[in-house]
Amino acid sequence: MRRTLALTTAAAVLAGLGATAYATTPAADRTKPASRPLAGLRILLSNDDSMRAAKASNSDGLGLYELRRAMCAAGADVVVMAPWQVQSGKGTAVTNGGVLTAQRRTALPAGYENDCAGAPSGGAVFGVCLGEGGCAPDSPSATPADTVKLALRGGLTAKVGWRGAPDLVLTGINSGPNIAASVNDSGTVGAAVAAIDQDVPAIAFSSSGDESQLYFPRENYRAHAEFGARFVAGLKERGLLTSAFALKVDYPDVSAGQRAEAPVWTRVGDGAVVYHAYEQRGSGDTFDITLGLCEGDESEGECVENRADADSTWLLGEGHVTVAPITWDRTYGTPVDARRELKAVQRYVEREAPRP
């Protein structure tokens, strides 16, 4: 069964409604990791949900701060350059002209102020807008890919003094999964693709919402972030941080106490979970942009999933963490250049990766 929803309702499935200030976690819990396996690793962090973390649904960047927290706790030096406004659905879009401003955020969301205080860069957070003279609340935003390209092509050097590229680019944690056909639209994935296009390893993280898919609990972000830090540490330890392809890591809903199942190596599904639709107003020239949800037992059309190893099946149907490789090369039938690396990462996911 397919149904379409008004944009204001269905958009919440992809990006939520937006963040209560999260309750302050005791400093000891945030800064006392058992070990620091990411010590010395420089990480650029971006997303497509912005760096605001101000909406009640937790859909506008709260996941970014949870990921920043976990990576700094594991010893990484993290710098954030993220879109000024929510940019969900922007894919790999870039801005072709004009001016970008990378403005540092000095007042961070409550509870996250000191997460990276001991890192060389202090966990600096920058929002990137279009235009000059500073970013105002209503300033138009850079796209996710813009932020990564800016950072890698001079922004990090200018703003925090990093010489050379970071060791890793992380994007997310996105509010809502990026699976199946929506991967092509995802700004979270698009930002990771922009990184590997510049030969920098990248991983895109996305988390499910609660049962309603209208609210994105901090519990999901936190579980994903802490898993993500251990996942990255395992890749680093094995020398598997590669720019030959990006990794897409999606996390199931655990907010009601359910357990996330072990990571599964998947492909991007060939069906749709959410799709765009366009409804004409009467007989005129105006069309409402709507989002449709595939529900129930679809037997035909774009909602059909034909791949047994689809990310959507294992994430939504079975509750597993799903991992899929993503490449910038859209040439159909291109041979896998890094076959040995791909097999090594697959083996790590299937046999050695941390369990949630």
Rank of each mutant, 00 (worst) to 15 (best):
D199A: 12
V249E: 03
L41P: 03
R153N: 14
S312K: 00
G97M: 01
E318L: 13
G271W: 01
L342A: 09
T31W: 10
L44N: 11
M81G: 01
T147H: 06
F205C: 07
E211G: 15
F227E: 10
A53Q: 03
K55E: 14
Y65R: 01
G111A: 11
T242A: 07
Y65P: 03
Y278C: 11
P120K: 14
M71L: 15
T8V: 14
G127A: 07
L45P: 11
D29W: 12
E305F: 00
A202V: 09
A56W: 09
P217F: 10
A158K: 13
K236I: 10
R267V: 15
G209V: 03
I289V: 14
A195S: 14
A180K: 00
P201G: 14
E341C: 04
G98A: 08
G319Q: 02
P217I: 11
F126V: 12
E211F: 13
S46E: 01
A244Q: 13
T101R: 11
G269A: 04
T101P: 05
L67F: 10
F231T: 06
P137N: 07
V193H: 05
T157I: 00
R36V: 03
R30L: 15
V323N: 10
G271P: 00
S35F: 10
D270A: 06
T266C: 15
R330N: 13
F245T: 04
D138F: 05
D115P: 06
V321E: 00
H276Y: 15
D288V: 09
R330A: 13
Y65C: 00
A21Q: 15
D77E: 10
D297Q: 05
H276V: 10
A202Q: 07
E298P: 02
T147C: 15
I173N: 00
A308T: 11
G234W: 05
T24K: 11
A110C: 00
L315K: 04
A23I: 09
D185K: 02
R105C: 03
S46Y: 05
A73L: 10
L342R: 10
A23K: 07
A27N: 03
R36P: 02
R104T: 11
L168V: 02
G190M: 04
G234Q: 09
D288M: 04
F205Y: 14
R218F: 09
A76G: 08
V148T: 01
D250N: 15
A192E: 13
A158Q: 13
T143V: 01
P37I: 01
H224I: 00
A195L: 13
S139G: 06
V349S: 04
G98Q: 02
G269N: 06
T25R: 13
D250H: 06
P83M: 07
D250M: 08
S312A: 12
A191K: 03
E318D: 08
A34P: 05
D146N: 10
A223G: 14
G301R: 09
R267K: 15
V183K: 12
C303T: 08
